[in-house]
Amino acid sequence: MMEWIVENKQDAVQAEKLGADRLELIASYPVGGVTPSIGLIRQVVDAVTIPVQVMVRPDAYSFVYTEDLKNVILNDIKLLKSYGLNRIVLGANKVDRTIDKDLVERAIEQNNEINITFHRAFDELSDLQKGYKDLIPYKEHVKRILTSGGSANCTQGLPVLKKLVQLQRETNGPVIMPGSGLNAETIGDIHQEIDADEYHFGTGVRIGGSMTAGFDPDRIENIRDVLKSDGKHKV
């Protein structure tokens, strides 16, 4: 399973044609992504047939939210639900660097069909394995966790990612989806080491490694070849 980041309709249509399995729709990639406009969301979702996970993040300053910002998040989720959109990318922590389970529970309570990717707020937790266990009770709705193993990228976070994938399989909990720094050069070693079920790509599938450029079919094919071979050959 390959999920790719997109920021507009053109990206989304091209990604589907090139074989993306799922999209993450965001605005403002340089700051890690924030909530896109409802007009953009509807345009992208109407343009493709593959699943689209929509980022719900009101600002790029912190993953610790005030009550007012929590209400913004919940209202955005409610609005998306009114359009039949239940796939959400969400993450929130408490000041003590643990999962904000209150917000997760409130999101689920107001939309029992919600399909959540807990995003890289997860990487700022003080204990990632504890954070994973805290999310297991919500696995019917928190389907996956986007993480680089608490490091700047997946290569640096590889030992932790390996433990998290093992924990996923031991507990049958949310899927660990590695993301950050994945490209044709790194995916072989990472996949061979951790054998994750899903991977998340941003600049690694783009021409020149730039989000402002289109997708690179050659790099995508290289990545796909590596994943099909279980990472046994490198590009």
Rank of each mutant, 00 (worst) to 15 (best):
E109F: 15
S210L: 15
S28N: 15
T66L: 03
T49D: 15
V142N: 04
R97G: 03
I145G: 04
K17F: 12
I116F: 02
T66R: 09
Q53T: 15
L79A: 12
I99D: 06
V89M: 06
R219G: 00
L135A: 09
G131D: 03
V175D: 07
V95P: 04
D230H: 14
G204R: 06
T212Y: 13
D100H: 01
V72S: 00
G173E: 10
P178T: 10
P174A: 09
M177P: 04
K70L: 10
S62K: 04
I136C: 10
Y132C: 13
N75P: 00
I5T: 11
G149M: 08
K234C: 13
G173P: 07
G39V: 01
L158M: 13
T98D: 11
D102P: 03
A15R: 04
V64F: 13
D197Y: 14
W4E: 05
T147V: 01
Y65F: 03
I38T: 09
K78I: 00
V142C: 02
V56W: 07
V72Y: 11
G173D: 09
L158W: 11
H191N: 09
R169M: 12
I108Q: 03
N172W: 07
A213C: 10
M177F: 08
D102M: 00
L69V: 13
I88K: 03
R106H: 12
H141N: 11
F215K: 01
I99G: 05
S28A: 14
I136H: 05
G202N: 10
Y199A: 02
V226T: 05
V160L: 13
F122G: 03
D218K: 10
A12P: 07
I114G: 05
N8T: 03
D76C: 04
A12V: 05
R97P: 06
I41K: 05
G202C: 05
E105K: 12
L18Q: 04
G33C: 03
A152V: 12
E24A: 01
T203S: 13
Q14S: 12
E67Y: 15
Y65T: 08
K234A: 00
N153M: 13
L128R: 02
L85Q: 01
T117I: 01
I38F: 15
T155N: 14
E198T: 08
G209L: 14
T147Y: 07
M55Y: 01
K70M: 01
D100N: 07
V226I: 15
I223H: 03
Q156I: 15
D197F: 15
W4F: 07
M177Y: 04
D46N: 10
V6R: 07
V45D: 06
A196K: 04
A92T: 10
G231R: 12
D123F: 12
P178D: 11
G188N: 08
I145E: 09
L227S: 09
T171P: 00
T49N: 14
V52F: 07
G91C: 09
L182R: 02
V13N: 06
P30T: 03
D216H: 01
